[in-house]
């Protein structure tokens, strides 16, 4: 199959089509960054208002678990890079396998985060008025956990969406759809997955380490 056959009729060639897809994807990623930026701004504000409580609450979170979660997500990003590489090399089997590894890391991340959530539910470290964790009773503690659940929850929704996209791409790769002349979908799905990784790279120190 000639690479040209994947070019939509309104694009001059595949390179132009790819550049348009990249621009669209990056514009979308820009809006995603701003969506999270609102929460990061709220975090900055309340951290400065309730500094002591935020430090105390942060220490209560499981930093080792979060370090493992970070490593898992970075592994997923690496798997997606390899999928992109194999798609360009027209190696469908390896593309599919790499994408499935990335989906696996996404699911592992969600499972680990689920364990954290269950732990917080049991001890009562919940958002807003549902907060009843006896160990930290200073002002602002419920605000910390509201932000914690909002930020990690929104991020986890992105992980779910990203894993769904990657699973769909793996399905398409398994039928040999991607090749040297047609790998835009893998690249765009990959960009989304990397953004999810980048957001976590900032959430991890802000919530768990400082």
């Amino acid at each position: 199959m000639l690479p040209e056959s994947h070019v939509q009729e309104h694009f001059a060639n595949m390179e132009v089509q790819r550049q348009a897809a990249r621009l669209g994807m990056w514009a979308f990623l820009g809006t995603e960054v701003l969506l999270f930026a609102g929460l990061f701004a709220a975090y900055a504000e309340y951290r400065s208002l309730f500094h002591e409580t935020f430090v105390l609450s942060s220490r209560h979170l499981d930093a080792i678990m979060a370090t493992v979660e970070t490593a898992v997500l970075i592994t997923g990003s690496f798997a997606v890079v390899m999928a992109h590489h194999y798609a360009r090399s027209s190696r469908s089997g390896m593309t599919c396998l790499s994408l499935l590894v990335a989906v696996g890391t996404g699911l592992a991340f969600l499972a680990l985060h689920g364990i954290e959530y269950v732990h917080h539910f049991e001890e009562g470290a919940l958002p807003g008025k549902y907060y009843h964790f006896p160990e930290i009773q200073t002002a602002g503690a419920s605000m910390f956990f509201s932000l914690y659940f909002l930020m990690t929850g929104l991020h986890s929704l992105h992980v779910i969406a990203g894993a769904g996209v990657l699973a769909w791409l793996a399905w398409r790769a398994s039928s040999g759809e991607f090749s040297r002349g047609n790998y835009n979908a893998v690249e765009m799905g990959g960009l989304y997955w990397h953004l999810v990784d980048v957001i976590w790279i900032f959430l991890f120190p802000l919530l768990y380490l400082i």
């Binding site: 550049q19 990249r22 621009l23 990056w26 514009a27 990623l29 820009g30 809006t31 960054v33 701003l34 930026a37 609102g38 990061f40 701004a41 900055a44 504000e45 400065s48």
Partner: peptide, 22 residues
Amino acid sequence: GSVRLAIAIAVLWLFLLMFFVV
């Protein structure tokens, strides 16, 4: 070109938002 511009503008908005909130 355009991709870099899109990212630069996203970072600029991010900076403006964070700066004025803080």
